[in-house]
Nucleic acid binder design. Structure first.
Lengths: 216, 216
DNA sequence: CGGGAATTGGACCGATCAGTCCACTGCTGC
DNA sequence: GCAGCAGTGGACTGATCGGTCCAATTCCCG
């Protein structure tokens, strides 16, 4: 369930590569960064070409078209986003751990000055209506993220910390949405305040289902 | 604090108008719809021209450039978004009323099939990084929305329904973020489920601060 | 070392787009 | 009824962009 990033199965991978893999990787990395900063539409293939010191033919050697490159960028960003939250996301299983995750997300964004917001959210807002394939990839990416949160919540539930009546899937979805909305507003306001408010409110909503007291 | 939509003060309005106002309005309305469906970058001035049956010169007669048109669209969408929630947003002052607002937002999106998501959120994601002026307009727009929510929460607090320790501003910001995130995920998933999860979780977070019992 | 495939360079093309320009029309006030 | 300006039509332009093509080069492998 935590598999298949890369391009996927749009077309049988051109079979082989050598240093070409490095070039391809360089292209995807630069494209991801540019698209995060300027958006997909705001990033021309010439920009990518210039940023990587490659030629037009290389872009089209490794990717069928811009859409394919965007697909690869989505895959990379999904991995990137999850990796950044790695430690906190893997060790989720108590309200305190959820709070550490919250702090991590906030800290990362404070560090970047809230520029670009969430890479996934950014791509979603721009691509969902125009690229069905990208939409599917993003649904899968958000699904992975949500699943990580759900795993933690289920662990809490199994340990009896979370009430049996609570729905981990739904709570995870709510937390993810809070993060996305907070990130979008933080990006707009250029301040982490909305992100903190969003996550704190969602966390309070989760805390309602806590079994032991309600440490608030 | 609930003022100045329209273009703003980018340049002294060209003074007069007659039926021209109708044409201008027609242009803004069509541009708003197109940009909501296809995004700003995905909407060419030629698309707007075709949709309104106007000519290129009219577009540039009423707007200095595309950015100015976008500015007008933002103003219109702010008004539109608030108008759609009008009754529920004006009569906010109890948890039950907040729930009615939640239902309203969900219902509106169910009706549109979640296409386009939130007009403001959509514009924000696309413009924040590239157009400082648009960013300012969007901050103001979100501010109005947030303020409506805060007014309701403050009313609850004044009536003693909400604990004195609660921060209406922060809760309002969290609710707005929950709505934005839920809307974005709903748009991506083409389902209102994420929106419901996001708003329910945020509402639960608000309910924590309720004074009377905790009807949950 | 030789041959074929992977890789790379970069000119080129057609489409599209924001923005310009000028000529025409029709209303309005004097 | 006529002068003048808001409103309109639409051709045109320069730039940009995604995408194509072909030739040169480099690398791998027998």
């Amino acid at each position: 369930m935590i598999v298949m990033h890369t391009t996927g199965d749009r077309a049988a991978e051109p079979v082989l590569t050598a240093r070409g893999r490095a070039t391809r990787e360089r292209i995807v990395a630069a494209a991801a960064e540019l698209m995060h900063e300027r958006g997909v539409a705001g990033t021309s293939l010439d920009d990518v070409r210039a940023a990587t010191g490659t030629s037009k033919s290389q872009l089209y050697h490794y990717f069928a078209d811009k859409a394919a490159l965007v697909g690869a960028v989505i895959g990379r960003q999904v991995g990137q986003v999850l990796q950044v939250q790695q430690p906190e996301l893997d060790d989720l299983g108590s309200l305190a751990a959820l709070r550490r995750w919250r702090d991590r997300v906030v800290e990362v964004n404070r560090h970047t000055g809230c520029v670009g917001g969430c890479p996934l959210g950014r791509l979603a807002g721009e691509l969902v209506e125009s690229d069905p394939s990208a939409r599917a990839d993003l649904v899968a990416g958000f699904g992975e993220w949500r699943e990580h949160l759900a795993v933690g919540l289920r662990a809490m539930q199994a340990r009896g910390e979370l009430a049996g009546g609570a729905d981990p899937e739904e709570l995870a979805l709510g937390l993810l949405a809070a993060a996305q909305g907070g990130l979008l507003l933080a990006q707009t306001h250029r301040s982490v305040e909305p992100l903190e408010a969003a996550l704190d409110l969602a966390l309070a909503g989760v805390a309602v289902h806590l079994v032991v007291s309600g440490d608030r």
